[in-house]
Design a protein around this nucleic acid. Sequence first.
DNA 1: CGGTATCTTGATTGGTATCAACTTAAGTGG
DNA 2: CCACTTAAGTTGATACCAATCAAGATACCG
Lengths: 229, 229
Amino acid sequence: MSKCQQCIIRQFNSLKHLSKEELVRVSACKTSKIVKKGEYLFEEGTRINGIFCIKDGICKVSKMSENGRNQTINLIKKGDLIGERSLISDEPSNLNAIALNDLEVCFIPKEEIIRDLKSNPTFTMSVLNDLAKSLKNSDNFVVDMAQKTVKQRLAETLIKLEDKFGTNDAGIINLQLSRDDFANIVGTATESAIRLLSEFKKKELLEFKGKEIKILNPKGLEKIAQGFS
Amino acid sequence: MSKCQQCIIRQFNSLKHLSKEELVRVSACKTSKIVKKGEYLFEEGTRINGIFCIKDGICKVSKMSENGRNQTINLIKKGDLIGERSLISDEPSNLNAIALNDLEVCFIPKEEIIRDLKSNPTFTMSVLNDLAKSLKNSDNFVVDMAQKTVKQRLAETLIKLEDKFGTNDAGIINLQLSRDDFANIVGTATESAIRLLSEFKKKELLEFKGKEIKILNPKGLEKIAQGFS
DNA sequence: CGGTATCTTGATTGGTATCAACTTAAGTGG
DNA sequence: CCACTTAAGTTGATACCAATCAAGATACCG
């Protein structure tokens, strides 16, 4: 098994603030695993007892609403940590994490992280920072959900996805989502997401065949996201 | 000016983890102020450069959406801290804080808090815990906003308000909100909030005259919140 | 190649926003 | 204290957005 000290991924998250000695200890107790596309990394209500570091792949973070529909809260990718919140609160997870494509993750048990949090203020501040960022995102998301139309939210989602995952040489977004995935991010019915995607296509804001989506007119999408429909 | 060491309020928040010496320093550099009903404690986009500790009163935390409507994110009360997020991220505030009734607050400058965060792990862990809780609330709020109807959200809001602020001897919720305030929490138009409140009244789930609201049938409201309308 | 999941489009229904008119309550100044 | 002014609350009518139901098309997989 590879060692944390030599892992490049940690440069992208709070783990980069750990000292060499701390890394050696972390490395000694970490485990790795592969999660196949569609499978759970962890489930709502279970104790994860540690944090995961995503080495490769993309993971969908979601939550079941009381009425039985699924809401995607976030998409996380290579370099991200997940599980900090439940670790800190010492509670079962309130969220599901599902692999969108094959996922390669490392797991660091709770005790090790807690120890580092207590002894390494720089690391702790970095984790605090991550949580603060997440909280800001989440608050903004609340406002969007409450105040924007589905059309606005879908336009915004498309821009954010391109921003976060980039595009390949052909300009296609580096993330293939089903229509259902889109619906679950935007918080709407699958058919509504489909209809709006078609509308955007007709207006030549984007083009797609199947799951390959290419944004043609980002400015136009932004205007829609802001309510100029 | 009273001293933090003797202030009971700090027992309700992370400041209780500060040592005597730390408290003396905090006390020396803190300032107090009164914010009149309806006035801003701070505004979106401004740097607050510290945290506020609510000594008395209730404060509405909100955010303007791009389409010009206001969304209330949270209500905070005596004993709560506010401003931690922007302090940690070292960014201007992303939220507004407005006094719902006359507000008595203490302000502790950023440098002092940062110093304590770096030197007192227990305090830091407590702040981490607060952020983690906020994040969980916020994520749940996203799901509710995305997946529940306005009726469900209003029912839920009423239950939560009674839970958080309690009732007086007559069973009236200890917080008087305008119809507009309700609408901004639930994320709907004022008229919709009014109509639903009337509907709940007709169904004898609650009664109200003016802003005084008394919940008669909490179980019934819970059922509505869960979708059995 | 058949079967199943995903995608797509149409028709219908229901929820919510919006606009408009009006009523009640809450100040405010003479 | 009353008349006036303004803000807050209420109700009805209408229009729009989005959910749901239904049916068919296309892609995917064993």
